[in-house]
């Protein structure tokens, strides 16, 4: 296959792109940065209508003027629904059995009452024992949250 020879110079050049990578410091810090990222994602607790709103507004950003009025109308309706339903999930999100992610930290115990969750301030604890910014890395899987390398046993 003569083509193979023809591409050899090109392939040498492409291999040089392996050098286009951050230094080792970036990768040394990446795991820690990932823990911070994941914790932030958990604690942000985006309500369902935020994602739905972003989906509806996508045509607008994409420059599709025909769909923009439709998206705007839906966004207005959605805003109304959010105002009504918003308080139900305000400030917290379920992480695991009986545990709730709250902007103030990871709740280790909570009491369910009706549709809302009552957070017991005295039971609020964080994996690091401090405020939310001091939380230790946290992972979440399909079953709920688990604290990583912490004294909390979920």
């Amino acid at each position: 296959m003569s083509e193979k020879q023809d591409f050899s110079e090109l392939q040498k050049l492409l291999r040089l792109k392996r050098l286009e990578t951050p230094g080792p410091e970036y990768f040394d810090r990446f795991v820690d940065a990932f823990h911070v990222y994941q914790r932030r994602e958990i604690l942000q607790d985006k309500p369902w209508y935020a994602n739905f709103g972003a989906f509806l507004l996508e045509p607008w950003f994409a420059g599709l003027p025909r769909l923009a009025p439709v998206a705007a109308s839906c966004a207005l309706v959605l805003a109304g629904v959010a105002v009504i339903l918003g308080p139900l999930s305000q400030g917290s999100g379920h992480l695991a059995d009986g545990k709730v992610a709250h902007p103030r930290g990871i709740v280790v115990a909570s009491v369910q009452s009706g549709q809302s969750t009552e957070i017991q301030p005295e039971l609020i604890d964080t994996a690091a024992g401090g405020d939310a910014s001091d939380l230790r890395p946290l992972y979440v899987n399909g079953h709920g949250a688990v604290a990583y390398d912490s004294r909390l046993a979920f």
């Binding site: 990446f30 940065a33 990932f34 990222y37 994941q38 994602e41 992972y139 979440v140 899987n141 399909g142």
Partner: peptide, 13 residues
């Protein structure tokens, strides 16, 4: 890359 590892972790089960 953050999203990928997060998604992978959540989907691991």
């Amino acid at each position: 890359l953050m999203e990928v590892f997060d998604k992978a972790y959540r989907s691991l089960p």
